[in-house]
Structures are given as structure tokens and as C-alpha cells.
Design a protein around this nucleic acid. Structure first.
Lengths: 224, 224
DNA sequence: GTCTATAATGAGATAGAC
DNA sequence: GTCTATCTCATTATAGAC
């Protein structure tokens, strides 16, 4: 069964399927897969547990549906942004800063302005990608997401055609680590900075992140 | 109750407390707190479940003891390395590369050469620090670990005395994200690089990580 | 310290009425 | 689609013998 993303009309009361997906999204993001029970989800969705199994079958399938509800839009938007930027540059390599922004801004933007569902989804994605624990039953969706990474790496290769491939892969890995860390909005940054930086101020973090990583990319991927 | 780290003598069969801690360390690292049941742990430790509660009381307390068994040695080693490097530089700021190595190498070294216990501990630390899910019942230990961060940030301030404080905090946050990502050894890097880079080759990753982040730190923390 | 046995509750999943 | 009731097994934790 396929359930569309929450209705555009905020006044429309969501169907039970949507309420269940929303509740799952929130609780999986907060507590992880094993830490969120179907009872908790049912209570949060104000529905009996049997309605969850009726709509989604097993808990694993529910989790998959939570991801599946949004991942395609997320991936399409990101790929689209990268493609547009490359088209606009008329064959010349797109600027590194622009490319990085295309790569991370769609998800960050949805997390900030897409409503609580997208916020929870972003946290959940960060958790799931960071954690090999979810690899097994997320395999198909991880594959989908890896296409975005391939597009980003390919665009980087055009900017740094002489870069060592291993260094390039590691550079992207380091960048990805930070993106995931930003998306989950754990309290790490707030705590460490004594409140000077807020982990929920994603825009500020991304705006600093781009020149930061651009500097490292240039230094390490431009052969002397 | 306080249990010492595993015996130095590898032939000495570990006590039941140690076996339980070892099994917990492994399973918590692999599946997270909620995903590892006390039954699983008991089976892996070849002990009845009641022996776990007898030794450690609750599951939460068991988790805390798993962390507590190693964190003090880890923190002490890291702080010691940073202090030694600063002493050796005779009042001049220590080099950024040296400082970064002092900051991350102790944990990485233990993960690579400290035996399976330290490997699992490193993964678990990465998981727990990344994830705000564990903040509540790890608060005291997170506080301990934050002292390491404070020492690192203070040493960075000496190297970049005119740096904007917010940028410094963000730079350290970005670095920390990657350190955690490296410690958990999720398959992300292997998958993305098509096998070119191995997530268990911590030394290679750290050796590239230091010049990578040093370049970014210098670029962003040196006012024009 | 170690074990068997068991309590008390929570878990995922199902049956069947409406 | 929705609900109540229930099954079956896993969960944390405890009691009490040795």
C-alpha cells in the first residue's frame, strides 16, 4: 500500500494511515526503531494497535513506509537542483559552493520549513544513515539515496579532475558525516558551545559549513 | 559496584561480570540500547539473566557500567596527550596537526589495537554521542567527555587567538561529527566509495582527516 | 556467586464483530 | 476502515535454593 504525504490543506484532519505514519516518524526519530513500540505509536496516533497492522502489516514494513513516503521527493529535489545548476553553467564545472548547497540545502530546507513531519523525517534519515543497524531492511532505500551521492561525487570530479579518487571519497565522507550530524539535531553542538550555537539553527550551520568544507576540498583535491 | 577492565592476561578466563560487560558492550554497540535485550546479553555471556541483575541491578545501570568501565582511561589518555604536546612546545602554541592527532588518536588507537572490547566501546561511544536518545542516562559520562572537548577547544583558541568563537565552535562540531562517524565504522564509506575505502581502516582515515580538517580550520579561523 | 523458577508486564500480531 | 478482545511469546526483574 502506498500512502501519500500529508494533505496540503492544514485543516483537513489526517486519515488514520497518515496519523500512524506521522506518529511513527516522530517516535522512530526520537527513540530509534527498537525503542519505539507499536503500542507507543498507536497511542500517539490515537488509534488501536490493530489498525497499524491492518494498514501496514508488520512493524518493519511500517518503518519502510515511513521512509518511503518522503524519500522519493527528497531525492528528486536534490538531483534536480544539482542538474539545474550544471545546466546553468553551460558546460563549465559548477562552482564548488553552489554544488555543495544543491547537495545539502533541499533536505535542510525541508527540515526547517516543511513542517514537523519533514523535521522528524530528516532526523530519522540522519539516524538511519549513520547507523549500520538499519542497513538490512532499509537496503532498497539506501540504494535510492546513494544515487544522490553518486551525482554529487561525479560533479565534484568535474571540478577536481586531477584529484586522487580516494581523497575525494574521503572528503565526501567527511562532509556527509557532518550533514547527518546536522540533520539529527542532537544536543552535541549546543552543549559543547555553551549555548552559543543552536543545533536547530540549520541555516546558520549550513552557511558556515559550505565555506568550511569548500576550503578543505580545494586544499586536498587540487594536486600541487 | 565497580568492575575493572578485562584482565591483562589473555589466558585468564574472565569472570561472569566481565563476560556480561563484554557481551553488553558488543550488543549495545551493534543494536543500540533498546535493541539489545538482557536475554541476548545473557546468552552471549553464557550466564543466566538473573546474574546480570544480581551484578548490575537494572539494564540502565548495566549500560552505564559498560561505559564507565573504559571512559576514564580514554579521557585520561586523551587529556594527557594534549597536555604533553603543549608542554613540549615550551609555551608556543602547539601545531594544529599535532593537536588534532592528540585529540583523536587515543580513541582510534584503542579501537584498532586495544582488542574487541575497545573496538565495541568505540562504536558504542560514537553511537551514544551522536544520538540524543542516550543523553538522559549518560549525562554524567557525557560531562566527563565534554572536558576533553573543552581542552581541545582551548588549545585551538591559542592557535587561532583572533578566530570568531562561533566559527571555532562550528569547526570543532564538524570535526567531531566525522570522528564519531569514523568510530562507529558504519558501512557508509565502503558503500559510497565502491570498496575503495574501508571503514575499518581507521588509521588511513585519520591520516587523511588531519590535513583535511587542518586546511578548513586555517582557512576559516584566520581572520583576513 | 550461581542457579532454577516464576512473577508481572510489554511486545508484535491476529480473529472476528460491526 | 475501525474496533474490542485475545493469542503467543519476549521482556525486565525478583524470590529463594544451593
Amino acid at each position: 500500500m502506498v500512502v501519500k504525504a500529508a494533505s496540503v490543506n492544514p485543516d483537513a484532519s489526517p486519515s488514520s494511515s497518515e496519523r500512524i505514519l506521522n506518529a511513527s516518524e516522530m517516535l522512530f526519530a526520537e527513540r530509534g526503531y527498537a525503542g519505539a513500540s507499536m503500542r507507543d505509536i498507536a497511542r500517539s496516533a490515537e488509534a488501536p494497535v490493530s489498525l497499524i497492522t491492518h494498514h501496514f502489516g508488520t512493524k518493519e514494513e511500517l518503518f519502510r513506509q515511513v521512509i518511503d513516503r518522503r524519500i522519493h521527493e527528497q531525492v528528486a529535489t536534490t538531483l534536480d537542483d544539482i542538474a539545474k545548476a550544471q545546466d546553468a553553467s553551460n558546460g563549465a564545472p559548477v562552482s564548488l559552493e553552489t554544488l555543495m548547497r544543491c547537495y545539502m540545502e533541499p533536505m535542510v530546507h525541508k527540515s526547517m520549513h516543511g513542517g514537523p513531519g519533514w523535521k522528524n523525517y530528516a532526523k530519522l534519515m540522519g539516524l538511519a544513515m549513520f547507523n549500520s543497524q538499519y542497513d538490512d531492511f532499509l537496503k532498497p532505500m539506501i540504494d535510492v539515496y546513494d544515487r544522490v551521492q553518486d551525482a554529487f561525487v561525479a560533479a565534484c570530479r568535474k571540478i577536481f579532475p586531477d584529484a586522487d579518487e580516494r581523497r575525494l571519497q574521503l572528503a565526501v565522507f567527511f562532509l556527509n558525516s557532518s550533514i547527518l550530524s546536522v540533520l539529527v539535531e542532537s544536543g552535541m553542538l549546543d552543549r559543547q558551545s555553551g549555548g552559543l550555537c543552536k543545533s536547530n539553527d540549520l541555516q546558520m550551520i549550513v552557511d558556515e559549513m559550505i565555506p568550511f568544507y569548500a576550503a578543505a576540498f580545494r586544499q586536498r583535491l587540487t594536486p600541487a
